[in-house]
Design a protein around this nucleic acid. Structure first.
Lengths: 192, 192, 192, 192
DNA sequence: AATGAATGAGTATTCATTCAT
DNA sequence: AATGAATGAATACTCATTCAT
């Protein structure tokens, strides 16, 4: 059993506060003082854990992205057949986005604004490798259309973000049925 | 032929400057003074045309969204058969996003951050009505799968944004061939 | 008659306030807010006239140094004989330092601390040229000892600062008699 | 032989670090944390040896001044004739300032800024007594002009600081010859 | 209509000092 | 004696907004 240090607890609180506040107000409308207050520390304390505001948000981004990727490939077996593997990953991602609403929203902002260093953004891209490999295999096996990974991603994974955003804004609701429909739409769009 | 007033010219310059600066720096990192400088007016002048910064960006959003919608349904005849109509609209949208890069980037930021009033956001949604009606007809005619408009949008229109973003960041390039592939993927995912 | 602009008045007030506060507290212990308050403007206004704190103090230094130099050579005729010329300049400098106490103190701090850019410091050195030329002539005429300008300065001009500092701290008083004695000591130390 | 305690070593390291950092950055631009780091102790440790930052710099000043005075009268015999005694002291002082560059620079800053308590400054003045007595004797013996100690100091000792400062800034170089010239200039200016 | 000057309210960041260990 | 973590109080600088002209 791992003992969690007091420091780690504070750092985690800061990360959490950052996500929440940036989600609600955006990067520049989130003062360090508010982050500190929400994490129950002094503003100066933030600077014990992060170099500055930019560094804070960069690190949060990288951590959330890593957590997301871990979740995306949970219980995924790269030996399994392509369709089964794709379904696993797709539903993992969908479930993550549906449950970890804050984290997803945060990533969504990071991916569409100039708030993250390009470097950190690149760092965050590394993690999807297994999915790319699965697609490659699917194309070789003649199960998946010969499309670039960008197209495959755009028509299967990216739409999830839209649906989740809509649900978060209470514009629609995604139950089990909807999710299943969404999945088969995704799969239909790329299977041969 | 309509004479364009001096006022209108200034307003247009302000709108243009806002789009450009917000794209590059984000809403909160874009000072009014810079917008003014780029539009060659005094900061005080902005307040003759807009109530305040929030109002400025709201209005810009609504205008860009309107322009976008107009383009989306250009040469679209609502009497035409469903597939033809869908292709027209889809390609209009894709072309707009590929050509009007600044505007698209701006909308992308607005749609993923808390920088726009919810009210203005609602305002911007109204414009897609003809597409929704087309889909409705398609479902009735048994040409399009019986999916909610959110799903249809998520898997056909929304992916375009991803592709265009990737192209703008020079991560991939979208030529005629790619566009055609993307279109048929979109159509495949919703046609029966 | 020259009209002094409102802007110039504000700038002057800022310069004056800077001198006074830096004298009493030192550069780093002088907040911009206090300078603003003493000059009866908002802190933000300082930045209309100066780029930042360093720029402010650099400019003040250069201006004071220029004022000092002007005074040093007031009514000085470079054609006059060496001893007369030297006496004129020496007494000008002494009088300036005795009367313009604030300015002198300020220069004294600037010359002995790392508070001024090296560039501005160089800028400030230019002004003593006529004195150097006088010394050169004096050496050629065999009236002044063949010493380097640094030595000449160290033993004739620099001592004035010490005396004035002592008077400012009320450790001694410099009346007419004292000044005359000081002058002849200075002249004695370099004349042949 | 005296054993130097571990405490004394740390204290010395702190004093040294303070001198070095204050020389390069000035009093207020020298954080306690940097002093601690340079002395290889924790910031908190400083407060075991000194009450606070002001106390630290005051004590450093007094110690350096004492070291300086000791050096100034090394091998000085108060029975010796006035000129010989003056030469001894003058050259001691000059040599100290030339060799102990850091200490001299530090004293120079202290003497020209409001960084030291007036009290500590007074404390530092006490040490020149033997020089004052020598001058008194010289005046009585008719060897030295009847000038106030302030004038004598201003025209013989104070100039050394200027020369050393110039050398430190690499604006001039002071070799044996220069030093000898400087000494005779000093003596000339006060001898009868 | 148009503006340049002015500013109050804020924000990121620093730092002397303390305290639990 | 020694420390690393923590912080409250400051401080330079920015910016949306106003106002006299």
């Amino acid at each position: 059993m791992k003992a969690i240090s007091k420091s780690q607890i504070k750092r985690d609180a800061l990360v959490k506060a950052t996500i929440s506040l940036v989600n609600n107000n955006g990067f520049h409308a989130t003062p360090m003082s508010k982050i500190a207050k929400m994490a129950n520390v002094s503003p100066a304390t933030i600077y014990l854990y992060f170099e500055n505001k930019q560094d804070l948000v960069n690190q949060v981004y990288i951590e959330v992205k890593a957590e997301f990727s871990t979740y995306a490939f949970k219980d995924y077996d790269s030996e399994v057949d392509v369709e089964t593997g794709f379904e696993k990953i797709w539903k993992n991602i969908a479930n993550y986005k549906l449950k970890q609403v804050d984290q997803s929203l945060f990533l969504s902002q990071c991916d569409n604004t100039p708030m993250i260093d390009e470097e950190s953004r690149q760092e965050g891209l590394k993690h999807l490798q297994p999915l790319l490999e699965l697609w490659e295999r699917g194309k070789n096996e003649g199960v998946i259309k010969p499309l670039s990974p960008y197209l495959l991603y755009a028509f299967t994974i990216y739409p999830i973000s839209f649906l989740v955003n809509m649900e978060n804004r209470n514009l629609c609701s995604i139950g089990k049925g909807e999710l299943e429909k969404a999945y088969s739409t995704a799969w239909n769009s790329i299977k041969i």
